[in-house]
């Protein structure tokens, strides 16, 4: 019995580490969706670019961890803003499907340019934190998991502060609620959207660097699956709801780790989509989302 409990707690710990990475990516999806109702398919690829930027910052610029993380976040933020400016903004008044197709196009473009530039082979992410494992009551916890949890938590606290206690945060919430009314109140909606993309992309880049540290390997296609899973996490928590993305990410990480522990690792990619289809059928608004009625 004790062993089983230990095993479950162990898997929970692993799941929460993985889940906090999904949560960071999911935040970007949910913020962008909340504001312009677009599934930013390219978000997973921005996460990949973040991981590679972190990699180059550490290997070529010889930066330590935190500055490298910062560089990756800044580069990804810029990329997010540029993508929004060039590809999404001209389509703001066209159909949502047109915007979605464009987003898919941007995603494939980034992936394939990365494949050409960096080759498909995985690269070893430098060992910034030499592996050290701690054992508490039979449960293993390593320093990388602690770094992931610490950074993710810190970023989420900062995000919470920005969204709820600053002018730009208030503007973001206003645009999410009703962009036309926000515009009438003198809010520069374009600027708010740009900033939302910047923040979301920066969070994804942080997740990319953390994954590099956790798994020690990065490759140009690494963004596809985590991107989709993080999207599912955002839907699970209630898309457009920031705490929902955090909760959804954690649930997703734990569910995935549990499935790997119980079944086999080859099934793990199906879990996310099974969860998605179930949640869409049972509670489409998500765990923390509000049910909205359709209006003509």
């Amino acid at each position: 019995m004790v062993e089983l409990t230990q095993e479950i707690i162990q898997q929970l710990v692993n799941g929460i580490s993985l889940g906090s990475i999904y949560a960071l990516i999911a935040l970007g999806y949910t913020m962008v969706y909340g504001i312009i109702k677009l599934i930013n398919f390219a978000h997973g690829d921005i996460y990949m670019i973040g991981a590679f930027t972190g990699f180059f910052a550490i290997t070529i610029l010889n930066l330590p961890f935190l500055p490298a993380l910062f560089v990756a976040m800044v580069v990804a933020a810029l990329l997010g803003v540029i993508i929004e400016r060039l590809a999404y903004r001209p389509l703001r008044n066209s159909t949502r499907i047109a915007a979605l197709i464009t987003a898919i196009g941007v995603s494939f473009l980034i992936q394939n340019i990365a494949l050409l530039a960096w080759k498909p082979d995985p690269r070893a992410f430098p060992d910034v934190f030499p592996f050290r494992s701690y054992q508490v009551w039979g449960i293993y916890l390593d320093n990388r998991q602690l770094v992931i949890l610490g950074v993710a938590l810190l970023l989420m606290v900062i995000l919470h502060y920005v969204v709820h206690y600053t002018r730009i945060g208030r503007a973001m919430r206003a645009v999410a609620l009703d962009d036309e009314a926000a515009r009438l109140m003198g809010i520069d909606v374009d600027r708010v959207i740009s900033i939302t993309f910047a923040i979301g992309s920066a969070l994804a880049a942080a997740a990319g660097v953390l994954v590099g540290i956790y798994y020690n390997r990065i490759d140009p296609m690494m963004g596809v699956m985590p991107g989709l899973k993080a999207f599912v996490a955002a839907v699970l928590g209630g898309i457009g709801v920031i705490p929902g993305a955090m909760l959804g990410g954690l649930v997703m990480g734990v569910a995935e780790v549990m499935v790997v522990a119980i079944l086999e690792s080859t099934w793990k990619d199906a879990v996310a989509f099974a969860i998605l289809i179930i949640i869409l059928l049972v509670k489409p608004a998500g765990l923390l989302g509000r049910q909205t009625r359709e209006k003509v």
Partner: peptide, 20 residues
Amino acid sequence: PTLRLRGDYLAIATLGFGEI
């Protein structure tokens, strides 16, 4: 079940089906 969803949700659900 999935065609009750609209637009982008349907897109993701069908994508999920393909992956499953």
